[in-house]
């Protein structure tokens, strides 16, 4: 083996003083074969990945799900039973929501999913803020604006309508 290699090296340097490759030498034709072999293996591998991977990935891919299953719902309490300073976490379809009867007497309602990493936020009456316990994000309870901590965006608003009899209806904004 060693002698063969040595002799072909000598041949190569003799044939090609610039140090390039001599395409006709047996060594190069072997490389060409290796190259095509490699390409076939690579192509075959990719093909197998595609043929095997497509059904497996499609099988595992989640079905399209609706984010909000409801567009409107009646809140469980009447305005009479929901005084200023009161708040309530509840499910609005599949999303957690937060209704606050804020200090201005206004009803504020938000999608309670923190804009940072998706924990459910809640109202802290003593500090008059909306707070996320996971990473300390803080929001304004009147506007839902992010005011401290890591959240990059305000809370998404929902709408609360109050009928003459005090029935509260929650709607998507």
């Amino acid at each position: 083996m060693t002698t063969e290699q040595d002799s072909s090296k000598t041949n190569e340097s003799q044939n090609n003083p610039q140090g390039g490759y001599d395409l006709d030498s047996p060594e190069v034709s072997f490389s060409r074969r290796a190259f095509f072999g490699g390409m076939i293996a690579l192509g075959g591998g990719l093909w197998a990945l595609l043929v095997g991977g497509t059904p497996i990935l499609s099988f595992l891919w989640p079905k399209k799900s609706e984010v909000v299953t409801v567009t409107e719902m009646t809140f469980e309490k009447n305005l009479k039973d929901f005084p200023v300073g009161e708040s309530k976490n509840f499910m609005f379809g599949s999303i957690p929501a937060l209704l606050i009867h804020d200090t201005n007497g206004k009803l504020s309602v938000f999608n309670a999913k923190c804009s940072h990493l998706g924990c459910t936020v809640g109202y802290q009456k003593d500090k008059d803020v909306i707070y996320c316990a996971c990473h300390g994000g803080t929001y304004d309870p009147n506007t839902g604006k992010n005011i401290a901590g890591p959240p990059p965006a305000p809370l998404k608003p929902l709408v609360a309508d109050v009928a003459a009899d005090g029935t509260i209806t929650i709607k998507i904004a």
Partner: peptide, 24 residues
């Protein structure tokens, strides 16, 4: 309770605390 607020003082297990603190 998926509707309820994340409980105050919630923390991951200790081996995720460094990442948790960094995120905060």
């Amino acid at each position: 309770d998926p509707a309820a607020m994340a409980p105050i003082g919630i923390k991951p297990e200790w081996y995720f605390l460094s990442q948790f603190q960094a995120l905060k």
